[in-house]
Amino acid sequence: MSATATRYQRSDFQSDQEVKWCPGCGDYTILASVQNFLATLDDVDKEKHVFVAGIGCSSRFPYYMDTYGMHTIHGRAPAFASGIATANPDLHVWVITGDGDALSIGGNHLIHALRRNVNLKILLFNNQIYGLTKGQYSPTSEVGKRTKTSPMGSIDYPFNPVSLALGAEASFVARTIDMDRNMTADILTAAYGHKGTAFIEIYQNCNVFNDKAFIQLTAKDEKVANRVYLKHGAPIVFGKDDENGIVITSTGAAIVKVADVGLDAIHVHDVNQPDPSVAFAISRLSHGPYGPTPVGVFRDVPRPTYEAEVTRQLVDAQAKQGPGDLGDLLASGGTWTVT
């Protein structure tokens, strides 16, 4: 991040609307992280940013940004955003969504945006609960979770959002934690630099309906033991004094004691690996924020963006056929003249 950034302040991205999330909500931190990040982008006119959201607590986000924005329909934000980005590839289109919005009602749009590689930055605020409707289980809630709609415990097997995105062959996949502003800033920077769909899962605490869902990654004592930071080009080690490491075996990723296998045997993280299989294996180390959980950038590979391909076909067609002429078009099916 540039230390000399002076063109914009965080306040340039704050709208005049009162922020109405519950006091203590993780969304505030994420809002600040995003506004602070945008203020570092000297080379981007702020009117080029568009924030698109679906429905849910997180999806109120565009109202609080002094940018172009759209608060759309539950689950459908990736569709609206894809239309904006395809129509005008010069824009920077951000999608703000939640676990219910993106993975339940909007699951279809999410996976198709990921496979198309539209140039969208998708921030999925995962709080593992329906907050706006006041506390029903979500597609990322753990099995057995008791909520208003699952009084005997949820029987729904949850999604691991990172695994899902990798399964859809997203070209950029990352995970961060609301409270970890530095990691969030680094990941936003990497995502912004990626051409194509960037998918970022953000563990976000809902202190009203699902407090402490991520306690194993945020409590002082446990976070050292459980945060597995992924750093490109470095062996994946974690825990007190980096005593644990990750190895890739024929059946997947596994946690070992570094002392047992030696540092050379530890898997060196490579975000540029074209095949998503190893990243997927790493994503399976935990199915949710329980125990050792990888955070950081899982995957960052180049692939042509959808809108660039759309533009290329238009240019090719015009090069071959010349710019369209309406009179020629109307006569293209064969004509006859009556005098």
């Binding site: 459908r76 569709a79 894809s82």
Partner: peptide, 17 residues
Amino acid sequence: AEDEIAAAGISVGASFA
């Protein structure tokens, strides 16, 4: 688009743009 709903949403996005 991937479905009818997305086709409409994508078009609304293009209209906004």
